[in-house]
Nucleic acid binder design. Sequence first.
DNA 1: ACCTGAACACCGTTCAAGT
DNA 2: ACCTGAACACCGTTCAAGT
Lengths: 218, 218
Amino acid sequence: MKPARAKVTREKVLAAALALVEENGVQGLSMRKLAAAVGVEAMSLYNHVPNKDAVIDGIAELVIRGMVLPEPTGDWKNDLRGLADAFRTAATRYPHAAGLVLTRQLGSDASLAGTDAALSVLRGAGFGAEEAVHALRAVLAFLVGTVLREVESGPAFDGDDPEAVAHRRAELVASPFPALAESAPFLASCDHDREYEFGLELLLTALETRRTQSSQRG
Amino acid sequence: MKPARAKVTREKVLAAALALVEENGVQGLSMRKLAAAVGVEAMSLYNHVPNKDAVIDGIAELVIRGMVLPEPTGDWKNDLRGLADAFRTAATRYPHAAGLVLTRQLGSDASLAGTDAALSVLRGAGFGAEEAVHALRAVLAFLVGTVLREVESGPAFDGDDPEAVAHRRAELVASPFPALAESAPFLASCDHDREYEFGLELLLTALETRRTQSSQRG
DNA sequence: ACCTGAACACCGTTCAAGT
DNA sequence: ACCTGAACACCGTTCAAGT
């Protein structure tokens, strides 16, 4: 009686790939190590997946599929915030794999559902079919940029390494750039939650202004 | 008399690396090909550069250094727009290498100059030393997200391939998502200039509102 | 000081051969 | 239908040896 190894499937390959990336970073993912992780020789993977790029696409989709869409409440700003939060939560749950999601064109069904939810909230708020797309793209661009900074920044920037922050701050104060020196205490580290909230509120406020102006015209 | 090969330098290695990336994409960069491009064996590169990661860092710095900071005009919104434009122009000039710049932590002197210029504009507009940092980070996050989308999107999304756009549009219309279907004509392709301007204006408007409210309080 | 050949420990992917 | 060993054409990097 053999150990009755569970059958290899595409799903298992992708799940193992995601785990491997989270453990060793994107660089640490190789078809050979991935094969070992699922208990098979490297060449067997090609029975379940066309190539390595497809594995990476699969990882990105897996992360996006982890996004839990909140129920709409009727308050469009709250609802859009909720969707943004869901995106950020899903992405930061896998810090090493997040870069893959943020960097690739999101074409999967999972991301379509999120897009539809966001557009639906915006339409409900009174934005037109075209304006809603612009609004969504602006918020999404900000979201991608913020989350990318968040998952890419090490403890020296997060504030988790006070010594590194102090060092960086001293460097900025001593730099030949006056505005940099003046803002050094705030530049030396980054509170990701705060920056995310600040920027998102900025965008939501500006959208609210646009919305009321348009509806007054119409 | 030998052909008097010009001496290899770090600068030349990095310039050749950037050219190689623009020609073949980031994947097409290898130490061996890079060595061939500068007319030397692979191992000689290690006399000028510690490893491949340093080469990639160098490429990113080279791209950022191409950013031409505009002279301040005194109109803070215009000045911030000018800086954002300069960043976008520098990044999109090297579409294949742009991802490297947008993805890495920008710590070089060249990026410090840009940061200082932006903070200086914001301080001049009346933002505090801390608020200016939040404002800068919000704009930069949006900028990174937009430019990333721009350099990553193929002709099927740019609108340069009308057939692909029509196909995508039909797919969206036929999708089970109502809001997606309604906005399909605007979702199927992306005018990067327009999205960039839309989002940037949104942020600048919101910052203007914050600015006047703060100064009324103060 | 700078270059090189040979070598090491890896890659992704193909293909013919097995069951 | 799925797995495998051997092989191909690559990688980044080290090291001892050359000039």
